[in-house]
Amino acid sequence: MTDLDAATSERATLETAPTRYIEGDGIRFAYRQLGPSTGTPLVLLQHFSGNIDAWDPAVVNALASDRSVIAFDNAGVGRSTGKTPDNVVAMARDAVTFLDLLGFSKVDLLGYSLGGCVAQQIAPEHSSLVRKLILVGTAPQGGEEHLLAVLEEAFSHTEAPDPRLPLFFTQSAASQAAGKAFLDRVYTRKEDRDIDNGSAVTDPQAKALITWCATPDPEHALLRAIEQPSLVVSGSHDTMLPAGNAYAMFKAMSNAQLILYPDSGHGALFQHHSLFVSQARAFLDA
């Protein structure tokens, strides 16, 4: 990155940052980089069906106030080329390719939902690369998932302005209000928005998530192989990947902390964004 690019990134927000591209291993990755170039970069691994503009600016911009934050589209997602894999192992391989292309020798990972599965796959295999993990609204191998049922329920709410409102938030007035505020924030960017690739992304991603949770790991071998400090976060009423997953992960991991947010669903980090950012920053800075 040039000095001009670095200065642009430091001033940018998720809503204003230019979408950049880097290519390798047959994939042209789209990404945005925010914040100062000092310290350990925080790389965001996105949820099922999500792209760069599905992240909440209130979370990303606040995290980038004192560290480099990179949001990117993995292979086949958004403006990145290639084919979206139908398994977590291949998704992790592609994400590591992206990190290698950027020349990072040490990163922190924030994996949300499906991205949290990818982060779990990367961390033990690349222990020298990954310093710390934040795992939000996710599940271990063999964990509990209700992806298809929850999606069907969410899309049945035809009165909702966006399926993420019933999908990510509870039915309480407070949670719904937080959800509407979240939607206002994610649609703030009008120019150069990321693109939705539809079933070419969602079909293989659904298979990957369902297969991950259907793969038994009764001894939690993968989780026990993760030695990095980890922060496990869940909403109290996450219907897609229930909070019991977070507790199981916390118990199995050797160096994990657990946070459960009240009256919140799969989008707990967006509903409680100020608290989440303060706790995430404290964890990363410790």
Score class of each variant (00 low, 15 high):
residue 111 G to Q: 08
residue 143 G to N: 01
residue 162 D to Q: 02
residue 148 L to S: 11
residue 99 L to P: 02
residue 154 A to N: 06
residue 116 G to M: 08
residue 107 V to K: 01
residue 155 F to L: 15
residue 150 V to L: 02
residue 125 E to L: 15
residue 114 L to P: 00
residue 152 E to Q: 12
residue 135 L to Y: 02
residue 113 S to A: 15
residue 147 L to M: 14
residue 116 G to D: 04
residue 151 L to Q: 07
residue 131 R to K: 04
residue 158 T to F: 04
residue 106 K to V: 10
residue 131 R to Q: 04
residue 137 G to H: 13
residue 123 A to R: 04
residue 103 G to W: 04
residue 150 V to Q: 10
residue 178 A to F: 00
residue 134 I to Q: 07
residue 103 G to R: 08
residue 147 L to G: 13
residue 174 A to V: 10
residue 135 L to W: 03
residue 119 A to P: 08
residue 111 G to H: 12
residue 120 Q to G: 05
residue 163 P to R: 09
residue 178 A to M: 12
residue 172 S to L: 03
residue 186 V to Q: 08
residue 120 Q to A: 04
residue 145 E to P: 01
residue 148 L to T: 13
residue 127 S to G: 06
residue 136 V to Y: 05
residue 181 A to I: 01
residue 165 L to M: 09
residue 108 D to S: 15
residue 111 G to M: 04
residue 124 P to M: 10
residue 165 L to W: 03
residue 180 K to A: 08
residue 146 H to D: 09
residue 116 G to N: 06
residue 161 P to I: 15
residue 115 G to Y: 07
residue 156 S to F: 14
residue 174 A to Y: 05
residue 141 Q to G: 08
residue 106 K to I: 07
residue 164 R to K: 11
residue 132 K to R: 15
residue 146 H to Q: 12
residue 109 L to I: 05
residue 161 P to F: 02
residue 103 G to L: 03
residue 163 P to W: 14
residue 131 R to V: 07
residue 143 G to K: 07
residue 99 L to C: 09
residue 100 D to V: 11
residue 172 S to A: 01
residue 159 E to Q: 15
residue 127 S to V: 05
residue 157 H to Y: 10
residue 105 S to C: 00
residue 103 G to C: 05
residue 146 H to T: 09
residue 114 L to S: 01
residue 149 A to E: 14
residue 160 A to L: 02
residue 112 Y to I: 11
residue 117 C to Y: 12
residue 154 A to L: 09
residue 145 E to N: 12
residue 119 A to I: 13
residue 103 G to M: 05
residue 166 P to A: 11
